[in-house]
Structure formats: structure tokens, C-alpha cells
């Protein structure tokens, strides 16, 4: 007989029994051990129908195709750049993926495009079985960034930063007038009209990071930004 041994939003540790029996299915962060579904992580449970998941509370960023990442160029090579993306795996940016324009490597210096320590907003376009990661700068919003602020948050908290359908990041943008890019690898770029607005956005992000796993977060962020209360109430 199948039985659920947990409910949603519980903090569980690796090995903990989440459900018994074959009617439940292990989602991400959970695994099957015979008749038992166990947690494979320190995380928060999420039960949806028969599916039992564990959402991680921490951990390093592992690239997936389609992710937006903010990377720092750490090596300029003959026909590509090595980019550090706050992950155990480095990414490679090939010349062909670096720009919508044609780059003639024989006539130009690679550093004219991207030099050491420079920062890019890029998209992961390929992850192979050996965890070779390819990124691209060809696409809307993808570019080299030269100013503003880069801050680092726990990559596990990125979904909360973004919010449902981008609601949280939109809220901070509206409240501060800053341009904000939240990348899946935990780096966030803030570029505002002035330093005060950037700092306001930075503090809002820190607030979300510190209180990511608590309820009523949206309201507190609105309050921090000095925005009027939402009539329908927060998340």
C-alpha cells in the first residue's frame, strides 16, 4: 500500500523517507530505493499529485541548455574564449557564437572582442556528456557588460529571485528603475540610473536571498522598495 510520509514545504535531509509504495514517483532531488522514495538532498519537499520532489537549498550551479549565465572571461585562446560561469565546469565561447557579425580571426585580435576579466551575459547552447559547455552571445539581451554591479547569490535561490513568470524581478525593476538580469548561475547584473537606485535594488536582492524560503516575501520586498501594498496580497 502506498503512503505519503511527508507534505509540501518540509525541510528534509538526504535519506529521509518521503513516500512508500509504487504509486508515488520520485522527481528531482528524490530517488527510489525499492518500495521507498527517499530524499537525495538537503532541501524542501514539493508534492504534486503522485510526484514527490526535493528542491535544493544550496549547491553549485550545473549548466543546462537554454540557461542564461553571467560569465567572466578567464582565458583568451586562438579561436575561442574560456569563460568562468560560477560552476565546476568552464564554458567555451567560440568565435562563431560570439557575435552576430562575422569575425575574421586572421585580421583581428581576439582581445578586441573579449579580454581577460571582462563580463558577458550569455546563453548555454550546448552541454555534452563530458560536460563540455558551449555558450553564445547571439540573441536578445546577450552582450558584454561594462558597468553597473554584479552580485553573487546562491544559485539555488535564483528561481525565487525571478519569481513566478518573472514577477519578483519585475517588481524590483519597477520599484528601482534599474535594469536587472538574473542569471541561472547565481550572478545578477544591476544597472541603474544612479548608485542609490542600484543600492536599493541590491538590498532587495539580499533580502530575497536571506528570506528565500519564507512566506510573505513579495510583500516585504514591496515594503523595502517603498511601494504601495498590493490589494490582492502577496505570495
Amino acid at each position: 500500500m502506498s503512503e505519503l510520509k511527508t507534505q509540501s514545504r518540509q525541510v528534509v535531509v538526504p535519506g529521509e523517507t518521503l513516500a512508500t509504495g509504487l504509486d508515488y514517483l520520485p522527481g528531482n532531488g528524490a530517488y527510489r530505493d525499492g518500495e521507498i522514495i527517499r530524499s537525495g538532498l538537503l532541501g524542501i519537499t514539493s508534492v504534486a499529485g503522485q510526484l514527490v520532489k526535493v528542491i535544493p537549498l544550496g549547491g553549485r550551479y550545473i549548466p543546462m541548455e537554454g540557461d542564461i549565465v553571467i560569465g567572466i572571461v578567464d582565458e583568451v585562446r586562438f579561436s575561442n574564449w574560456s569563460v568562468e560561469i560560477n560552476s565546476p565546469y568552464k564554458a567555451q565561447l567560440k568565435v562563431a557564437d560570439a557575435s552576430n557579425r562575422f569575425i575574421d580571426t586572421r585580421r583581428s585580435d581576439m582581445t578586441d572582442f573579449f579580454d581577460l576579466d571582462e563580463t558577458v551575459i550569455a546563453q548555454v547552447i550546448g552541454v555534452d556528456n563530458n560536460m563540455n559547455i558551449n555558450i553564445s552571445l547571439r540573441g536578445p539581451g546577450l552582450m558584454k557588460i561594462k558597468d553597473g554591479k554584479i552580485i553573487l547569490v546562491n544559485p539555488a535561490k535564483v528561481p525565487r529571485m525571478i519569481g513566478k513568470n518573472g514577477s519578483m524581478v519585475r517588481l524590483i525593476k519597477e520599484g528601482t528603475g534599474c535594469n536587472i538580469t538574473v542569471a541561472q548561475n547565481g550572478r545578477i547584473w544591476i544597472k541603474g540610473p544612479n548608485k542609490d537606485k542600484e543600492n536599493l535594488a541590491l538590498k532587495a536582492i539580499k533580502l530575497i536571498e536571506d528570506e528565500a524560503h519564507t512566506a510573505g516575501l513579495t510583500e516585504r520586498v514591496r515594503e523595502h522598495l517603498g511601494m504601495p501594498k498590493e490589494k490582492t496580497g502577496g505570495a
Partner: peptide
């Protein structure tokens, strides 16, 4: 290890 978010079978 658990605190670091490493996937584990058990403690």
C-alpha cells in the same frame, strides 16, 4: 556535505 547541497543517498 548535505549543507553544501551535494546529492546523497543518506546521511
Amino acid at each position: 556535505l548535505a549543507d553544501a547541497g551535494i546529492p546523497m543517498r543518506d546521511m
